[in-house]
Amino acid sequence: MHALNWLLINLGNAAQWLWEALKSACAAAWDGVDFVLNPVLSPVLAVLNPLCTALADGAYFVLSPLPVWLGLAIISVLTGAVMLIAFRYTSNQKAIGRARDDITANLLALKLFKDELGVTFRSQGRIMGALLRLQWHMLRPLLIMLLPMLLLLGQMGARYQWRPLRPGEQTLISLRLAPAHASLVDAQLDSGPAAIIEAGPVPGGGELVWRVRAGEPGRHMLRVNIAGATVEKELVVADTLKRVSAERLGSRWTSQILHPTEPLLPAGGPVDSIAIQYPAVQSYLYGANWWILSFFVLSMASALLLKPVFKVRF
């Protein structure tokens, strides 16, 4: 038993060490990718995001009379169809077909010649090769569709992840200071009719935090005067589901994908980001925890169903 305990504990320690090492390696690799991609993608997203927001606003204006779940279902099904068509024209359908046929043929060989070891091994090797070829041919359409997909998810997140504040509801507004201004302890929040300031800003840890109570319904603009600069942040007060932006940030492409609907904060200013704690949408179909699952299930299902219609192989 002692030997088993010793083994388990040391295996556990080794696994933990490996996990930490893997996390560090991934973080370092991601930093490298981010370092390369940010100067490229951030300006691109700065241009694309307002266009996408305008497009999405138009689409949601059309869908707004429908129940939220139905709107989400329509978007998911249409996305599945569009992605299927895009896949057809961006992928090498012939090569994909050949790979799939190879897999089918070798599966058949496995079944027919199961007593012949050489055939079995050769077929397994060919299946493996065909699978790798299939993955390779998937890569190009995947890379082409990645950016539009991320833009779409960002827009959907702004509508399904959080809900606007209801009049009278309490929330926090957090302003993260740029490192050069981290010692600032005061700022003036001009909330107008959007909110009543109850407490704050309480400084500390490089942040200033206000507690506010939502005021009149509408799409408002908050103004924060800090260190001679003025920064703005949108605040939405409504009883229904509307587009909200939980955070306004500086130029980071990852943040721009997650929070695409507001322009970037000016570079070099005293503020790194301003965030509003919007409540998460509570619904098993489209709530904060579910909309992305519903979206993927519905879009994949529609793509599978429409596959024969558009004669697409994948």
Partner: peptide
């Protein structure tokens, strides 16, 4: 963590 406002009777708890 508790951050105490330098002058006002307010705190922030993280």
């Amino acid at each position: 963590r508790v951050y105490r406002h330098p002058t006002e009777p307010q705190v922030r708890i993280e």
